[in-house]
Simulated scan of single mutants.
Amino acid sequence: MILCIDSGNTRLKWGLRDGDAWLATGAVTHAQAATLALPQSPIRIVACNVAGAAGSAAIEALARRHGLAAEWVRSQAAQCGVVNRYDNPDQLGADRWAALVGARALQAGACIVVMCGTATTVDVLDGAGIFQGGLILPGLDMMRAALADSTADLPTARGDYRELPRNTFDAIASGAIQATLGAVERMAAPLGPDVSCLISGGAAALLAPRLVTPHRVVDNLVLEGVARIAAAL
């Protein structure tokens, strides 16, 4: 029984993995992580953390409660059938690496891996499992906040998506979504018509219905990658 953890900027997702199956999954705040109540005790804890020292401290406290040492996912030059072509492979975010490993396990052909959280990442994984590079964008909420923080007359607001917005709130919401969709579709275009997109994260439900590129939403893609990496360690 392996406890897989995806500790992101906003919250911590977890899943209990037994072989190829998830027995339970959930999400908590970082403050709740150290006292997380699990339905069964794990024999290993494998974690991907991009929440800094506070995130790692909470995970380590949880591991100590179970008498275990946390094992950490870190980007590699190659792992689990994925080759990392970042200029400095260890500088790739651990969450992006885990998502790429998860995507490779779920998708044999070329794909675009989109993670929509506090930031949005758009990564290109070719048919041979080679990570060719990718983009980092502000997440949808961050785009809205940037407009509100940097301009006098544009408020922080949650408008609705419209093809042709006719009020400021909808224009802000639609602009953030259209900008993100455009980034995904421009990254996908050079890979040809057979490319697909795997999209995960809190904003996936806003983006996926409007994405032209063939796609599917995958819940907990980072956790899927963590589980695959854990099995290989």
Rank of each mutant, 00 (worst) to 15 (best):
T10Y: 05
T10C: 07
L12S: 03
L12G: 03
K13W: 01
K13Y: 04
L16G: 09
R17V: 15
R17N: 09
D18H: 12
A24F: 00
T25H: 14
A27F: 03
A27G: 06
H30L: 11
A31E: 05
A37L: 15
P42H: 13
I45G: 06
V46M: 02
C48Q: 00
N49L: 02
V50A: 05
G52I: 06
A54H: 12
S56F: 01
A58R: 08
E60L: 08
A61F: 07
L68H: 10
A69F: 00
E71R: 14
V73K: 04
V73Y: 00
R74M: 12
Q79G: 03
C80L: 10
R85V: 04
D87I: 06
D87G: 05
P89E: 10
L92N: 02
L92Q: 03
R104S: 05
C111K: 00
I112K: 04
M115F: 02
C116I: 08
G117V: 12
A119W: 04
A119Y: 01
T120R: 06
L125S: 06
G129S: 11
I130L: 05
F131T: 00
Q132V: 04
L135N: 10
I136N: 12
P138Y: 10
G139H: 11
D141M: 12
R144L: 07
D149V: 00
T151R: 09
T151F: 09
A157N: 10
G159S: 14
G159M: 14
T168I: 10
F169I: 09
D170E: 07
A171V: 13
A173Y: 07
G175S: 10
A176F: 01
I177M: 10
Q178F: 01
Q178M: 14
Q178K: 15
A179M: 10
L181V: 03
L181Y: 03
G182A: 03
G182Q: 04
E185M: 01
A188M: 11
P190L: 05
L191W: 14
D194W: 04
S196E: 15
C197S: 07
I199E: 00
S200I: 12
G201R: 04
R210N: 08
V212E: 13
T213E: 09
R216M: 09
D219K: 15
V222S: 03
V226F: 10
A227Y: 11
I229M: 06
I229N: 00
A230K: 02
L233K: 08
L233T: 11
L233I: 14
